[in-house]
Amino acid sequence: MDETKQVKLLETMMEFDRGDPMRIQHFLKVWGFARQIGKMEELDERTQEILETAAIVHDIGIKVCLEKYGNCTGKHQEEEGPALAEKMLTELGYDAELISRVSFLVGHHHTYTNVKGIDYQILLEADFLVNSYEGQKKSETIEAFCRNVFRTPSGIRLLSLQSGLKLGE
């Protein structure tokens, strides 16, 4: 993984979300959880790079959604985000194959069915780990989401540790 390129992407996303510390904090936390789960699951280097890149840009569509629709529903984010991610990643010199997969992940990060690929699975889990805390989700919601969406042993472990609930045990 090209760490210099990743540092530039992080800075570019922070510039994109300038003045919105909640959004910046959110994507940094999702990236941190995605990175941790990916390392715990021992992803190959390329899949880890795709995962971490997608985690950084996963909510890139929110600003446009708020301007265009007055809300940022998951569906709108999935519609608006991929083109913005593609543009940013192209400008930063990422390769076409990575851009294509990251675009797919950005366009599906609120879709919890037909999950294909460990990068997709981990992105969903990392985003929920952050959203469950930021949204102060109830135990029942966390347990149901864990049961219905989480699949990686590492994601389940981190959710259990964070929530204090006995999940997947």
Rank of each mutant, 00 (worst) to 15 (best):
E11S: 11
E11D: 12
T12H: 07
T12S: 10
M13K: 02
M14Y: 02
F16K: 04
F16V: 03
F16G: 00
R18Y: 12
D20C: 11
P21W: 12
P21T: 09
P21E: 13
M22L: 08
I24S: 13
Q25R: 09
Q25F: 02
H26K: 04
F27T: 15
F27H: 14
K29T: 07
K29M: 14
W31L: 08
G32A: 05
G32E: 04
F33W: 13
F33E: 11
A34F: 07
A34M: 09
A34T: 06
R35C: 15
R35N: 15
Q36I: 08
Q36M: 09
Q36T: 14
I37K: 08
G38Y: 03
G38Q: 03
G38L: 06
M40A: 09
E42A: 08
L43M: 02
L43V: 07
E45S: 06
T47P: 08
T47E: 15
T47G: 13
Q48V: 09
Q48E: 13
E49V: 01
E49L: 04
E49Q: 09
I50R: 01
L51W: 00
E52Q: 10
E52S: 02
T53A: 05
A54K: 04
A54R: 07
A54P: 06
A55K: 05
A55H: 08
I56H: 02
V57G: 05
H58A: 11
D59E: 12
I60W: 03
I62L: 13
I62A: 11
K63A: 04
C65K: 01
C65Q: 00
C65M: 02
L66M: 10
L66Q: 09
L66S: 03
E67S: 06
E67F: 12
K68S: 06
K68A: 10
G70E: 01
N71C: 03
N71V: 09
C72E: 09
C72D: 10
T73P: 01
T73M: 05
G74E: 01
Q77T: 10
E78L: 00
E80W: 04
E80A: 12
E80M: 14
G81W: 00
P82T: 04
A83Y: 04
L84M: 10
L84E: 05
A85I: 00
A85V: 00
A85Y: 00
E86Y: 11
E86G: 03
L89I: 01
